[in-house]
Each structure stands twice: as C-alpha cells, then as structure tokens.
Design a protein around this nucleic acid. Structure first.
Length: 281
DNA sequence: ATGGCAGAAGCATTCTGA
C-alpha cells in the first residue's frame, strides 16, 4: 500500500501536475497540504474520474488539507477533536484548516500542515508551538485508544542538522530551533518513527527547496515533510522515498512528495526488526 | 540586514509562506 504526502501549494494551480503524478505512481492514499481553496471550489472530479475518493478541509487563500484515496475513508474528522484542551482553544485552532484524519485498514491516517512560525520572535511562532502541543495531546488520546497511526504532512521542522543544506547558517533558526524540535519530539514521544530515517542515515535529502535564489538548481533544500508511523507498524514498512521529480516541472510546488510502501499482503512478512536501524538524534 | 519567488485576492498592491 503506497501512502504519500505532498504540499502542493495550491490545488488549482498544481492540478494537472498532481493528476500526472498519480497516474505515474498510483498511490493508494495521497495526503495534500496547502490546497488554498474553499471546499466548494476544490476540483474533486478529476480525482473521482481516476477512481479516487476525496476528503477535504479547506479555507480561502491559505492552508487547507485533503485526503485522496482509492478506498473510501472511514471515520473522517476535520481538525482536532477529543478531550484535549478547552473548547475555546480548539475553536481557535479550527480557524486554520491544518488537520484532517481518517481510518484505512485499521490505521489512522493523520494529515497535517504544521504552521511555519515565521520567526522565533513572532506570535506566529507561539501559535506553531501551541499547535504542536495540541497535536501531541491529540496523539496521546489516539494512543490511549490503541490506534495504529500514520502521521504525515508538512511539519515545517527539520528534525536534525542532517536535514538542512547549510546547518551552520540555519541551525537554531526557524524550522531548526530547539524549541520546535522539542515540540516535535513531544508529538513523537518515541512511539512514532521517522520512516525516511529507517532507510537513509545521511544528509543531502530534501523535500523542500525555496523558490528564491535558484535553490533547487543549487540543491539547497530542507527535509521538512515527513511520514511517521507507529512503532508497531515498522515491520510492515518496505520503503520510504522522496520523489523530487515534480520539483523540475514548470511552475512546480516548492515541496516534493514523500511516499512509503506499507506491506499488507502478508501480515507475517517482516522487512525490518523493530529496534534495528532506528536513528536516535 | 534585507530580499530573492510564488500564489491568492483582485486589479495595484498586500499578505503569507519557508
């Protein structure tokens, strides 16, 4: 089962590129971020024509998330829910459409677009940390229910210096600060693993390149788009790749899709031992 | 230290992103 995440930076501008990518890759589940459109204007039909089901949670101009899937999503939830924080705080977090979740094959798929935060001094940074703390509480609740989790999206955090093209310049700044990494680690709490780092330990692998300063051509990127799965699922993980090819398209998204292959054909087949190859940073 | 580039809204220019 192929599960992918892609910050497309506008579903309407990127529609043909996304359809082409789906035709090439044939994902079972594709989580999109930054769709930038209200639900009534989301181009649903091109996906339905390919046999996909579409679940959307969008707003005007900014943010917006969607789950495109071959199987119909079950238990679709838009935004945070459950007994986490006050209703008032939840209401504030719902103003920005950044999270949608659904169940597939007994796995809870959680698609997130984590706030960027702008700068460490910004009130948007405070919002980012609050949002990540809310996500941590949300996952605590899911864990209590015993759910198997696949959490993916644009996290706007580089987990380590290995995930930045120029760590000397950027370490400690936005997307690379201790505060953000602590907040991310508090979401993961060791119960979720970074699929990409199961297979690749080295630096030089990016999922986002700035539109400015010829960053893609100079390969000056960051790895800020991630797929995390419950440790119990790690034995089912066959691969995790970043497909940078759409970044070479005319008028590309600044992000590339990230994809995992989870084995559900043979439940006894193990690709990795759980405690092996887990990179602790 | 600042801006670079791109998208949406909407029609000149601002806001936002990362």
């Amino acid at each position: 089962m192929l599960i992918a995440t892609w910050n497309v930076n506008s579903i309407r501008t990127r529609l043909s590129q996304i359809i082409n990518w789906i035709n090439q890759v044939n994902p079972d589940i594709l989580c999109l971020q930054e769709t930038k459109v209200i639900d009534d204007s989301f181009p649903v039909e091109p996906f339905k024509k390919l046999g996909y089901s579409v679940e959307i949670y969008g707003q005007k101009s900014y943010n917006g998330v969607a789950i495109i899937s071959k199987k119909k999503a079950e238990n679709v939830k838009k935004g945070f829910y459950g007994n986490i924080y006050s209703d008032q705080e939840i209401a504030i977090l719902h103003d920005q459409k950044r999270l949608i979740s659904a169940d597939f094959n007994g796995i809870k798929i959680i698609n997130v677009y984590v706030p960027n935060g702008s700068s460490l001094e910004s009130n948007k940074f405070e919002y980012k940390i609050n949002w990540l703390n809310c996500l941590a509480s949300f996952l605590d609740e899911q864990e209590k229910k015993g759910s198997l989790i696949c959490l993916m999206g644009d996290f706007n955090v580089a987990p380590s210096y290995l995930d930045i093209h120029d760590p000397e310049k950027y370490e400690g700044g936005i997307m690379a600060s201790e505060v953000e990494r602590n907040a991310l680690n508090n979401v993961l709490k060791g119960r979720l693993i970074d699929c990409f780092r199961i297979f690749e330990k080295s630096t030089g692998h990016w999922s986002w390149w700035d539109y400015r300063n010829n960053a893609y051509e100079l390969n000056k990127g960051w790895r800020i788009d991630h797929i995390y799965i419950s440790k119990q699922l790690s034995s089912k993980l066959k691969s995790c790749v970043i497909d940078s090819s759409p970044r070479t398209n005319p008028r590309p998204s600044d992000h590339a899709p990230v994809m995992i292959d989870l084995n559900f054909d043979d439940p006894n087949e193990h690709f990795y031992e759980e405690e092996d190859n887990f990179l602790e940073i």
